[in-house]
């Protein structure tokens, strides 16, 4: 149980202080404690209301019951199994979506011909709510992992594609000219000028892609899974176990925040040159 509580706090706390710093909030607001006041007060209030009999707590269980459910699930090893299944799906789908989105975005951003040829089609496909693909993916790829991963990859693909294409197309001509003055070849120009120039937007695109990956894994697991956090949600609904639903939601929150913080931390060393990081010094 401490293994669960702990990543929660570090993940949320680290991200919260960084967010606050980036937005330039006054010092007294940027502390970790202030951000926790509201959720803790709500949880404590609900706990008291249920304990004193003011509320039933059948449909919205009090924190203590949710916590007990989490302990049960993790004690039996079931939680770990569901988390592993879900994280694995997100990671594989994310990886495929990132590779495809980066390649397509780079081509469309670099070459005006490719952009005019491909972009309208992709924008059209983007307008389709991704969930609408589900029946087709199931017909094509079956009910098991492939269709789930395909759905997640589609969700990740579009923000990455858009971010990379827009970033490459908007690299300052003046900076590119510096590369020409030093007679850089095409690949050297990409490696030494274009890639570093788009890196900040690329990280943003990756982070929104990852966020969508987490969103789509739930949809994917709704379409029939025997394990995964999404399965816990469906199972909780069908068997009338709201504590299990809320517990799974909490785990989603923690994992989403944690993976985002990991991604941000892994890319931060490459973005030290940016003006915005100055505040973190």
């Amino acid at each position: 149980m401490t293994t669960l509580d702990h990543p929660d706090e570090t993940g949320l706390a680290g991200a919260a202080s960084r967010d606050a710093g980036a937005r330039g909030l006054p010092g007294w607001l940027s502390g970790v404690g202030v951000g926790l006041v509201l959720p803790v007060a709500l949880a404590a209030g609900w706990e008291l209301a249920v304990a004193s009999g003011l509320a039933g707590g059948r449909l919205m269980p009090p924190p203590s019951r949710i916590f007990a459910t989490l302990v049960d699930l993790s004690g039996s090893g079931e939680l770990a199994r569901h988390i592993t299944a879900t994280v694995w799906r997100v990671l594989v789908g994310f990886a495929i979506g990132v590779v495809a989105g980066t390649a397509a975005g780079a081509l469309a951003g670099y070459s005006a011909i490719v952009r005019r040829l491909v972009d309208p089609t992709l924008q059209g496909l983007r307008a389709i709510p991704s969930i609408a693909w589900v029946p087709l993916f199931i017909l094509w790829l079956g009910i098991f992992e492939e269709s789930k991963i395909a759905l997640i990859a589609v969700g990740v693909f579009f923000p990455v594609y858009l971010g990379v294409m827009a970033a490459i197309a908007s690299v300052d001509r003046k900076i590119v000219e510096v590369g020409r003055v030093f007679r850089l070849s095409g690949p050297a120009l990409v490696r030494r000028i274009l890639l570093p120039a788009i890196l900040p937007s690329y990280v943003v695109a990756l982070r929104s892609g990852l966020g969508l990956g987490w969103m789509f894994v739930v949809a994917a697991e709704f379409m029939g899974a025997s394990e995964g956090l999404g399965y816990l949600l469906v199972d909780g609904q069908q068997l009338g176990k709201p504590d299990q639903i809320v517990a799974a939601i909490l785990v989603f929150a923690v994992l989403g925040k944690l993976t985002d913080a990991l991604l941000a931390a892994a890319t931060a060393p490459f973005l030290r040159w940016q003006d915005t990081v100055e505040t973190a010094r």
Binding site: K174, I175, E177, V178, I193, P196, A197, L199, W273, Q274
Partner: peptide, 11 residues
């Protein structure tokens, strides 16, 4: 050039 055109990601 008129502007320094330094690459911001290089020291």
């Amino acid at each position: 050039f008129q502007e320094p055109r330094l690459l911001p990601w290089l020291n």
